[in-house]
Nucleic acid binder design. Structure first.
Lengths: 210, 210
DNA sequence: GTCTATAAGCAGATAGAC
DNA sequence: GTCTATCTGCTTATAGAC
């Protein structure tokens, strides 16, 4: 091995860009059809590549799938942990809803890949979910409990409140096209997301008043 | 054709029972893996049948899939239209949340088949959704608008309120195992659904107060 | 109604040339 | 890194015997 030869540990920038392109297309397809419903061939064909080429970059279909999940999870955790710093209940609710809805809008396909994995019983990602998402939930619940102790919010079932926040915000990613269909438009626009944000924020904040 | 010969229009009771058994297993598997992720073989194998046997009862895989969706849709529409009779806002919210959550609990797999179909862009059921679910949504929104006119509820964005009710209640079907995992139990029990019902009912009703 | 046989194609993955 | 070739197995669906 010479110093000039490219090695596995330090791939060239072009290789990384190509892998990124593949991950984007894989995410798009896994979001729509799930792990079992997507073939390497269909991902490769959409990018004018061969399926063997995909298997050069990842040893197996499952490795590619996990790479997609890792990429989404990384971004999700980054945006979620950033807002757990808020020290004031109303600001916390506002930024929580805003960040989750923005994620639903900007990373809709990534969100859907997760939802599909969870609906399948999380056979390929349960360990990561348990290790990373579960502590986040418990930290959020504990924070609300503390605020309830201090009399700053009404005490309700904060675990189920978190389930409500998660499910109602991520619905704008997973079920977005359906919502748009019922409203008679081709897709949700910024105004729809803003209306959702206002409704959810107010509705949740009201539920925390004495 | 004699009077005693069984014909396609009047299948025997045993045949109907068998078809029902197949529909149940098909629903279970489509719920987990979606249309593309399930093979006729895996459905047949779970019932100790041959895949040819399935193709005797339905002409194709897609026909079987649509039969599953038809069965779920029929039950869903029946339980949903039954509660649009309520003439009082608070009772309407209470029964709406209760019925949707009960459906999530008792028809969890049926619900999941629908969610997956919708997430895939509803390629095989969009016509039915548009014809049946959309009018239901608009009727519900109109009913709330009327109550707002009469000053019986605060005027908010009722369309997005319906999206919230739908997404938060059906999450207990589609994401139930995940919620259970985060709460450290094998599955959601009746008490969890009751806590969800109380929280959602109160939270939504509060949002409609002046 | 259920069986065997078979068609015709696609799946993931590996080997080896270049 | 990318290509062709190939292996093995599974996919939906049809034909026809019983």
């Amino acid at each position: 091995m010479t110093v000039n030869a490219p090695v596995a540990r330090t791939p060239r920038a072009a290789t990384l860009r190509k892998q990124e392109t593949i991950l984007v297309e894989a995410e798009r397809q896994f979001a729509r059809y799930g792990f079992e419903g997507v073939s390497l061939d269909s991902i490769a064909a959409a990018l004018d590549l061969s399926r063997q080429n995909l298997l050069y970059h990842w040893p197996s279909k499952e490795d590619l799938y996990r790479a997609v999940l890792d990429s989404v999870m990384g971004e999700w955790m980054a945006s979620m942990t950033a807002i757990t710093q808020a020290d004031e209940p109303e600001a916390a609710i506002q930024s929580y809803v805003a960040v989750k809805l923005r994620f639903s809008r900007e990373r809709a396909t990534g969100n859907a890949v997760f939802t599909r994995e969870i609906m399948a019983g999380a056979p390929r990602y349960q360990d990561v979910l348990k290790a990373q998402v579960m502590p986040l939930l418990h930290a959020d619940v504990a924070r609300f409990e503390r605020w309830a102790d201090e009399g700053r919010v009404r005490r309700i079932d904060f675990t189920h409140l978190m389930f409500l926040i998660w499910s109602s915000t991520q619905a704008y990613a997973d079920l977005g096209p359906q919502f748009a269909l019922y409203m008679g438009k081709p897709a949700l626009d910024e105004a729809d997301f803003e209306r959702a944000r206002l409704l959810l924020t107010e509705l949740i904040w009201r539920s925390l008043q004495p």
